[in-house]
């Protein structure tokens, strides 16, 4: 006791406490993480046990605090059993998961994991019980898709939340439909398939896989189209146009009219 009391004000004491704390946490953590590897019984043929094991360990490090040690869900996060690899790939590759904080809508941010790690976690979650798989590159390819049909489907099914140009829009209670400007074809496909957050699921009977490709083709084509009329003003409709008309148009003409009626000031 006296040893600690005598040295507790030394500069190194703080570091010692931190190291001790980390060691304790690490040991406790390592003890707990021994478990989930056993759950890898129902392994899909496409994922190797090694990949699943890697996914499981990544899961336990970054996801388990909210989704539970066995992905069974907690009060902080939903159960992930049965959500499928596509949902994991969408959430993790868009950087939404792991979340920094729990908010009405998880924002898109730079992903924490690389593709291999993401696929490993996805394989682990898929091993817990089915769900849609990550689509292949051919399944999401916009090449040869029917863009005219994609346009109609996009306006009917997507634009009401994501806006006519995929610029995004507001939903209720702080939720929002994100902009589609950076979504990869795979992510768009996965979002339709799994319905992340407020988005409804558009399964393969509602929108067939071919129609999903049509929609992807329309989104990716239109967002890369140049704006023939000048600056886009955000492609969010007439609100910014009105703002520019008043601030830019009326504003500069008010300056012009002040200038044109200026009188030489007489200094007395």
């Amino acid at each position: 006791m006296s040893l600690i009391t005598a040295r507790r004000r030394r500069r190194a004491a703080g570091y010692a406490v931190i190291v001790l704390g980390l060691l304790t946490a690490g040991v406790a953590y390592a003890t707990v993480t021994g478990q989930p590897g056993t759950a890898a019984a129902a392994t899909p043929s496409s994922a190797s046990p090694k990949q699943i094991a890697e996914g499981a360990s990544l899961f336990s490090v970054t996801c388990a605090s909210c989704h539970g040690m066995n992905a069974q869900g907690t009060s902080q996060g939903p159960s992930l059993i049965g959500v499928g690899a596509a949902a994991v790939d969408f959430q993790v590759s868009t950087g939404r998961m792991p979340a920094k904080e729990i908010s009405a809508e998880m924002p898109r941010k730079p992903p924490v994991f690389d593709t291999a790690q993401t696929h490993a976690i996805a394989a682990y979650i898929a091993s817990l019980g089915g769900g849609p798989a990550i689509p292949s590159a051919a399944e999401v390819s916009p090449i040869g898709a029917d863009m005219a049909l994609g346009q109609s489907l996009f306006i009917t099914d997507c634009a009401q939340c994501h806006n006519f140009s995929g610029a995004g829009g507001a939903l209720t209670y702080g939720k929002y439909a994100p902009a589609l400007t950076h979504s990869t074809p795979t992510q768009i496909y996965e979002a339709m398939l799994t319905g992340p957050e407020a988005m409804p699921v558009f399964n393969d009977t509602t929108i067939t896989p071919a129609q999903k490709r049509d929609i992807i083709a329309y989104i990716t084509t239109v967002r890369s189209e140049a704006n023939p009329g000048g600056f886009s003003l955000g492609r969010i409709g007439p609100v910014t146009e009105g703002l520019v008309a008043f601030l830019g148009g009326i504003g500069s003409l008010v300056f012009a009219s002040i200038w044109i009626t200026l009188k030489r000031r007489e200094h007395t």
Binding site: T156, A159, Q160, C161, I236, G237, P238, V239, A245
Partner: peptide
Amino acid sequence: YNPSGITAGSQPDF
């Protein structure tokens, strides 16, 4: 125009 479609940010002119 397609009566079944609607877009977010449907605003009239100012």
